[in-house]
Amino acid sequence: MDIAPARESGRLTFRDAVDADVPALVQLIESAYRGDSSRAGWTTEADILEGQRTDPEGVRQVVEAPGSRLLLVERDGALVACCQLEHRGDAAYFGMFAVRPALQGAGLGKVVIAEAERSVREGWGVTEMHMTVISVREELVAWYERRGYRRTGKLSPFPYGDERFGIPQRDGLVFELLVKDLVASER
């Protein structure tokens, strides 16, 4: 599907990622969340987590898993964003969301999340979108709330000691479940 968002030049193309996309996807996700490159955007986790955000094996698992899609977003053939969509009964899980840091803050993320919601609502018939966010990321949680997501207060522990998810730079990190009613938002 092609979409031309306001304030953006060029056409956006959405497609499911394939195995050959894995290296570029890892680079995009890492650049959006970790290290100095992530500081060009506003979604950086560099102050709370060091190390990797993901790896080729983790991305490949998402690409290949049944009931899962890694939605890849290109502008004029260049990778600019991605997100994971996983079918979980009446809900879809939204994760691994990354927008190229230099493009953050210009509305691209809003277009991507809207397309992801439309896609799972129409393709899987789900009624809710779920995601987990590190609860101390107040600015990010507020961004999702402006998109119609609500905090549930349901917390799950951060996987301290599992460096596949990063090396925490502080204590007390937890994930909070955010949920959006996709049926109400369609009206």
Rank of each mutant, 00 (worst) to 15 (best):
D2I: 04
I3S: 02
I3E: 09
A4W: 15
E8L: 06
S9M: 03
G10I: 07
G10F: 07
G10M: 08
L12H: 02
T13V: 12
F14E: 03
R15N: 01
V18Y: 08
V18M: 05
D19M: 08
A20R: 14
D21P: 02
V22I: 09
A24D: 15
L28R: 04
S31M: 07
S31W: 13
G35R: 05
D36H: 09
S37D: 15
A40G: 11
W42P: 02
W42M: 11
T43R: 09
T43N: 11
T44L: 13
D47Y: 11
Q52T: 14
R53S: 09
R53Q: 09
T54D: 14
P56S: 09
G58M: 13
G58P: 02
R60Y: 14
Q61R: 15
V63Q: 08
E64I: 02
E64S: 10
E64H: 06
A65H: 13
A65L: 10
A65K: 13
P66E: 12
G67A: 08
S68Q: 13
R69W: 12
R69I: 07
L71V: 03
L71F: 02
L72E: 10
V73C: 12
R75M: 09
G77F: 13
Q84A: 12
A91S: 15
F94S: 01
G95H: 06
V99R: 05
G105E: 00
A106I: 01
L108W: 03
E115Y: 13
E115M: 08
R118C: 08
V120M: 13
R121S: 15
R121E: 09
G123Q: 10
W124P: 01
G125P: 05
G125I: 03
V126G: 01
M131G: 12
L140F: 09
V141N: 06
W143N: 01
R146E: 04
R147H: 14
Y149A: 00
R151K: 12
F158N: 04
P159T: 08
P159K: 03
G161F: 09
I167H: 14
Q169W: 06
E176K: 01
L178T: 03
K180V: 00
K180N: 07
D181R: 09
L182A: 06
V183E: 07
E186N: 08
E186K: 13
